[in-house]
Design a protein around this nucleic acid. Structure first.
Lengths: 314, 314
DNA sequence: GGGATGCTTGCTCAGATGAGCAGCTGGTTG
DNA sequence: CAACCAGCTGCTCATCTGAGCAAGCATCCC
C-alpha cells in the first residue's frame, strides 16, 4: 500500500469508525465510491491501521486457542490475554479455569483434583453453585510435613462445597520414604477406595510445578534441595500430580516415582477431560512437556505461555 | 450492565470481531437471538470492552477537533493523537500542519509565514509540489543577532520552493532597540512593500513561543533574560509573531511592541486563514491565549494541548 | 392491590455492506 | 509491437445489520 493510499485509508477509517458515518457518506465526503471505501477499510484492518481489541479481564484469545488445539491435538484450549498494566496473570488464568470447569459438558459427576497454589486460586474464584452434587476426589497425596498442611484438603473441599457436593480426601503424604510403606498404604482399604474413586473420575483438574529449589516438594519437606538438583540433572523440568517428568513427559526417576502416591500419568493420558491449568513464564518448560506428551486434553493458560508453546519449531 | 451480561458481551465481541462471524452465527453459537447479539455489541463498544483505535502517525482526532471548533469558534482544527511510545509529538503536528496547508481551499496565492523551530519542521516535511506558484512572505523580522541566522529565511524559502513559487523575506531584526529605528526602517520603500505584501496574504502560518529563559528572543539576543522576566511579571505567557501577549491575548508591553517589526495581531485576527501550529505541553498557556482571543482561525496541535484547552472551565 | 414506569425482547423493514464478476488500465515481456 | 498479466474499478445481488415499534416483564410507588 503506497503512502497516499494509506493516508486515504486513515481518513476513511476515522470517518467510518470514529465519526460513525456510513461507507456511502465517507465516500461522498472524500470523493470516492463506497466500494473503494469498503476495500480501504478492509485493507486498513489487515494492515493494522485499525486495531480492534477486546479489553476485559475475562476476554480470551480464540485464535491462539485454535492453534493450540490444532498443533497438539487438544480437545480444547483456553488462552487468556496478558494484562496491560502490572497486573498478575494467574488470577485471570484461575478465573478462566473456573469458568471452563463450570461449563464442561457433560457435567462431571466425579472430579479428580490435584492441589497447589494455582488450583487454590481456581477454587477460590469458582462460582458458588457452579454445579450441583459433584463428587470431588483428591488424586494425589497432600499432607504436608510442615506448617502449611490443610491447603491441599482445603482446595478439594472448597470446590466440592461450591459445587454443592462432597469431597473425598487422600490424607496421606505425597511422597513416602520407603517403597514398602507406599505399597502398604495403597493396600489399605480406605486408601484403595479413594484411589479407585479417583480413577473413575470423569474429569481431572490439575496444574504443574517447576523442578527447582522453590518446588512445593522442597517447601513441604518431601524432598531436599539436593534431591531436586539430582532430578534436574537427570532432565526433570517439573512435576505433575507429584510425579517429576522430563521434557518428553517421561518419569525421570522411577524409584522416586514408585514412592509417590496418587494417580498415574497414564490414567491422566487416558482421561476424557484432563484439564491442565498453568500460568506464568517460569512454567513454559513443564507446560511444553505436558502438552507435547499428551498428558492433558484441555489446557488453560495465559497468552505468553501459549505463544511459547507455539513458537517451538515443529 | 451486570456481570453475566458483561461476560456474554465479551464472548459475543470475541466471536464477532476476532473470529469474523456474523451476528447470526454468533447468536446461534451462544443460543441467543441475533438482535440481542447486535445490542450486546453496541453496549460492549459503549462500555469500552471493545476498543477500536486507529494507529497511524497521521491519524487525527476528529471528535476533539469538532469540540475545539465549537468551543472557540474556529474555522477549522486539526488534532493529532499522542504517540504511544516515547516518540515525539512535534513531528506529527508538523506533518499535520503541512498536510493541512496543502489542502487549504481556495489555494492561497500569497502565504504569510512566521519562523521558529515548529515552522522549520513544517517546512521540512511539506511535500514537494504541495502547490504551484505560491508567493511566500515573511511576516515578522527574523535576522538573528547570533550564529543561527538564516533559519528564519530558510523556512520561508523552503516553503516557497516546495510550492514552486518564490519567497519574499523581511531581512531585518525582530525587535529593534529604538522606536525611531523601527519607524525609519518601516518607512523604507523595500520594507514597506514587503509589509504590504504580507498584509495582503490570503493565509498565515505561524506558531508561538513560550515566555521564559528559553525563549528564542533570548537565544538570539533580542532580549535579555531579565527583559523576559519582566514580561512574565507583567503577565506575558508567550509570543506570537514576535509580540508578547498575556493570557487574554493582549499586548503586554506596548513600548516593546512598538519596537517589534512585523505584522500586527489585529491583522492576524482579521485574516481568513490564520493557521496556528502549536505542539508540546509547555505551550498550553500560550495556546489558550491565542485561541481564546481569536488570534487564529485554524489550530493545528496535539491531543494533550487540545484537551488542556477544552478542560478549562467555561 | 393496581397502575404507572422503565427496561428488555423479538419482530419488520429499509438501509448498509461484502462477495463475486466483468471491464479497464498500466506496466512487462517475448 | 502485440500479447499478457496484475491490480484496480464500478457494478449486481444476496446477505447482514441497525432503527424503530409493539408486546412482555419486572419494579416501584401510592
Amino acid at each position: 500500500m503506497d503512502e497516499s493510499t494509506e493516508l486515504l485509508a486513515v481518513r476513511v477509517a476515522e470517518l467510518y469508525y470514529e465519526e460513525n458515518k456510513t461507507q456511502d457518506e465517507v465516500g461522498a465526503l472524500l470523493g470516492i465510491t463506497r466500494w473503494k471505501v469498503g476495500r480501504l477499510l478492509t485493507r486498513a484492518r489487515e494492515a493494522g491501521i485499525v486495531r480492534i481489541e477486546i479489553v476485559h479481564p475475562r476476554a480470551r484469545r480464540l485464535d491462539v486457542e485454535r492453534q493450540l488445539r490444532d498443533r497438539f491435538g487438544l480437545k480444547d484450549a483456553v488462552v487468556v490475554p496478558l494484562p496491560t498494566e502490572d497486573e498478575e496473570v494467574s488470577p485471570r488464568v484461575a478465573q478462566a479455569a473456573a469458568d471452563y470447569l463450570a461449563a464442561v459438558r457433560p457435567i462431571p459427576r466425579t472430579l479428580g483434583v490435584s492441589w497447589g497454589r494455582t488450583l487454590d486460586e481456581v477454587a477460590r474464584v469458582l462460582a458458588d453453585g457452579w454445579t450441583v452434587g459433584v463428587q470431588v476426589v483428591q488424586i494425589n497425596g497432600g499432607v504436608s510435613l510442615n506448617s502449611k498442611q490443610g491447603t491441599a484438603a482445603q482446595t478439594a473441599v472448597t470446590i466440592a462445597q461450591k459445587g454443592h457436593g462432597q469431597a473425598t480426601l487422600l490424607p496421606i503424604p505425597a511422597i513416602l520414604e520407603q517403597v514398602e510403606t507406599k505399597r502398604a498404604i495403597e493396600r489399605d482399604r480406605t486408601v484403595a477406595s479413594v484411589r479407585a474413586l479417583g480413577a473413575s473420575a470423569s474429569a481431572y483438574l490439575y496444574s504443574a510445578g517447576v523442578a527447582g529449589a522453590s518446588s512445593v516438594h522442597v517447601d513441604s519437606g518431601y524432598l531436599s534441595e539436593s534431591d531436586v538438583d539430582d532430578l534436574v540433572a537427570k532432565g526433570a523440568v517439573g512435576d505433575v500430580v507429584g510425579r517429576y517428568i522430563d521434557s518428553a513427559g517421561e518419569i525421570v526417576d522411577s524409584a522416586l516415582d514408585e514412592r509417590t502416591v496418587g494417580i498415574g500419568l497414564d490414567e491422566l493420558r487416558a482421561a476424557d477431560h484432563a484439564i491442565f491449568v498453568v500460568a506464568g513464564d517460569a512454567k513454559h518448560d513443564v507446560a511444553r512437556a505436558v502438552v507435547t506428551s499428551g498428558l492433558c486434553s484441555v489446557i488453560v493458560t495465559d497468552e505468553a505461555t501459549a505463544h511459547a508453546l507455539l513458537e517451538e519449531t515443529t
